[in-house]
Structures are given as structure tokens and as C-alpha cells.
Design a protein around this nucleic acid. Structure first.
Length: 224
DNA sequence: AGGCCGATCCTCT
DNA sequence: GAGGATCGGCCTA
């Protein structure tokens, strides 16, 4: 079990994103340890990119909110959204450049009971209940106790950190690529193929596997 | 299963 | 002053 090194993150987010699939996000809050496998991510490109990504928080340059994105790679960028939720990104690219990867879903592995308490979901042994814990960018933050005040700017490359990403040697298998979720349709970047999922995972956000198979034929799946 | 809606407040213009 | 990288509840079918 080794932390993913900083060099891994010092690359463009569209390269880092699919390689993050299968890695583990580990969170320690007090005595509780909660961990899940990353099964769904999205890349957001920095303003230095040839065609600017207008959906990215960094695209108008540094602000008070997004300054972590312009710092060194391998740090957490946590922001609040809709007044009640948080989302977590991993900062990529060398210092000064602002690409990042949004974590959108995990497969819960360790500390499931603690996650269930935080989410207010009763574990009845069903896949549905387990999925509900971490199948969404803000759901996974709630489940792992991730919030802006405590976690924004933390270094994820130290296994002893309160928040870290580690590699357990898992073979990620096939990766599915689609457009990103929740992007304003007026945005020029709305169709860019920057969402990456583990094709076989039951823990991706949104419709279940059966429905996704049907959706492949008609919808926004760019490649499998 | 899919669509609509309100909650709720931070961030940037 | 406007809008958002969301979620959960409620509706129809």
C-alpha cells in the first residue's frame, strides 16, 4: 500500500484522470478510517490549455476560492457548492498550471458503518444502500467527512495524512469515457469527453449498470 | 426510470 | 445580484 507520488499528478488532468481509476481514497477523522476505490472521475483543464475549458473553476485565473489549483500537484481542492455540499478535486500539472480531477464516485471498502452514519443511510445489505453512500461527488465527501475548512489544500501524497490517495495494485480493467455531468449546456466545453468510469463498476453515479448498457447505444458515451 | 423542483449560501462580477 | 462540477423528494408511468 503506497501513496501515489507527486510526479504522477504533475501531468495533464485528462491523462491523470483515467489512471486515478482503481486507486484508493483514504480519509481519517479522529479514530475513524474510511476508504473507497475511485470508480468515476472528471478532468477539468487549466487556462493554459490551447482551447480554454470554460467549465473549469480555474479558467479565469486565480481567485480566493481556487488558489490551491495554481499550487503544487497532488493537493486536495475542496469547494462548497449550492450552499450545502462539498466536492473534492486532486490538483494536477506542475505549480503555476491549474488542471485538476474531480472525484465523482467511490466503491466503499473500509469504514462502511462510519460512512453510513455520516450519510444517514441504514445498511440493509442491499447494493442500493451501499451505492448510496458514495455515488456522487458530494455524497462521497459526506461519507468520508471531507469539507473545505479541514481538507482544502491537504497533501494527498503522504500515507499518514488525514486524506491520501494510495495504490493497492488493483487492475482497473476497461475505462468508459463520456461527456462531463452537470455542465451548463450553453458552455462550449459541454460535450468534451472528460468523464472517466470503470466500465464494470456498480458504484458509478447515476443509472445502474443495466441502464448504462442500454444508454451506450444512444447517449453520450464516446468510447469504451 | 426519468423529469422537475426547492433548498441554501458561497463566490465572483 | 446572479448562478452554481448537487442532492433528495415527489411526481408521472
Amino acid at each position: 500500500m503506497v501513496a501515489v507520488p507527486r510526479l504522477f499528478y504533475e501531468r495533464p488532468p485528462e491523462v491523470v484522470a483515467p489512471e486515478l481509476l482503481g486507486k484508493l481514497l483514504v480519509s481519517r477523522v479522529g479514530r475513524a478510517v474510511m476508504a473507497g476505490r475511485i470508480v468515476e472521475v472528471e478532468a477539468y483543464l487549466g487556462p493554459h490549455h490551447a482551447t480554454p475549458d470554460a467549465a473549469a473553476h480555474s479558467h479565469r485565473g486565480p481567485t480566493a476560492r481556487n488558489r490551491v489549483l495554481f499550487g503544487p500537484a497532488g493537493h486536495a481542492y475542496v469547494y462548497s457548492i449550492y450552499g450545502q455540499y462539498f466536492c473534492m478535486n486532486v490538483n494536477c500539472e506542475p505549480e503555476g498550471q491549474a488542471g485538476c480531477v474531480l472525484l465523482r464516485a467511490l466503491e466503499p471498502l473500509d469504514g462502511v458503518e462510519a460512512m453510513a452514519r455520516r450519510r444517514g443511510i441504514a445498511m440493509d445489505g442491499s447494493l442500493k444502500a451501499l451505492r448510496g453512500l458514495t455515488s456522487g461527488p458530494s455524497r462521497l465527501c459526506m461519507a468520508l467527512g471531507i469539507e473545505r475548512a479541514a481538507h482544502n489544500g491537504l497533501d494527498l501524497t503522504d500515507v499518514d495524512s488525514r486524506l491520501a490517495i494510495v495504490d493497492d495494485g488493483f487492475d482497473r480493467g476497461d475505462v468508459q469515457v463520456t461527456a462531463r455531468i452537470g455542465i451548463n449546456p450553453a458552455n462550449a466545453a459541454v460535450d468534451w469527453p472528460l468523464r472517466f468510469c470503470l466500465a464494470e463498476s456498480e458504484f458509478v453515479s447515476g443509472p445502474r449498470l443495466g441502464a448504462r448498457v442500454a444508454a451506450r447505444r444512444s447517449k453520450n458515451v464516446v468510447a469504451i
